[in-house]
């Protein structure tokens, strides 16, 4: 685990507000799901290698909450999702848009425990997603 992720995960565990969003089998490979956590919408994905990612569900280019319905793939080594509206591609790890400099969507810690997918939407992240 990279340092940043480790720190993020440690922070998340301290505050201990992981939300269980679905059973593991509800999250297919390379097809996202949307979850509603308070008033935050999160898009959760499982890539082909089994890794989990969670990002904000809102497409920043249009304002519509649709990113969970994008096509999951890769660009180089980067795991990606493409907005289903106008196809801008986002790095699932960092939330950065690979087609438009400086555009970034929120990311959230996500993990799998005892057959459930859990997301951590802290106050920081909650604010970032607005």
């Amino acid at each position: 685990m990279r340092t940043v992720e480790a720190v993020e995960a440690a922070k998340a565990m301290e505050t201990d507000v992981w939300d269980s969003v679905c059973g593991s089998r509800d999250l297919p490979v390379e097809r996202g799901v949307a979850a509603l956590l308070g008033d935050v919408q999160v898009a959760i994905f499982r890539t082909y290698d089994g890794a989990l990612f969670a990002v904000g569900n809102q497409d920043p280019f249009t304002g519509a909450f649709v990113l969970s319905r994008g096509i999951v793939g890769s660009r180089g080594e980067t795991p990606t999702v493409a907005s289903p509206l106008h196809k801008q591609v986002f790095d699932l790890r960092t939330g950065r848009c690979l087609d438009s400099d400086g555009v970034v969507i929120p990311t959230y810690p996500v993990r799998e425990r005892d057959g459930y997918v859990e997301v951590h939407v802290g106050t920081e992240a909650g604010r970032a997603s607005r």
């Binding site: 269980s20 969003v21 008033d39």
Partner: peptide
């Protein structure tokens, strides 16, 4: 609509 709230309409 949502995997954890299937009946809740998207509030947006």
């Amino acid at each position: 609509s949502f995997v954890n709230a299937p009946e809740v309409p998207d509030p947006s």
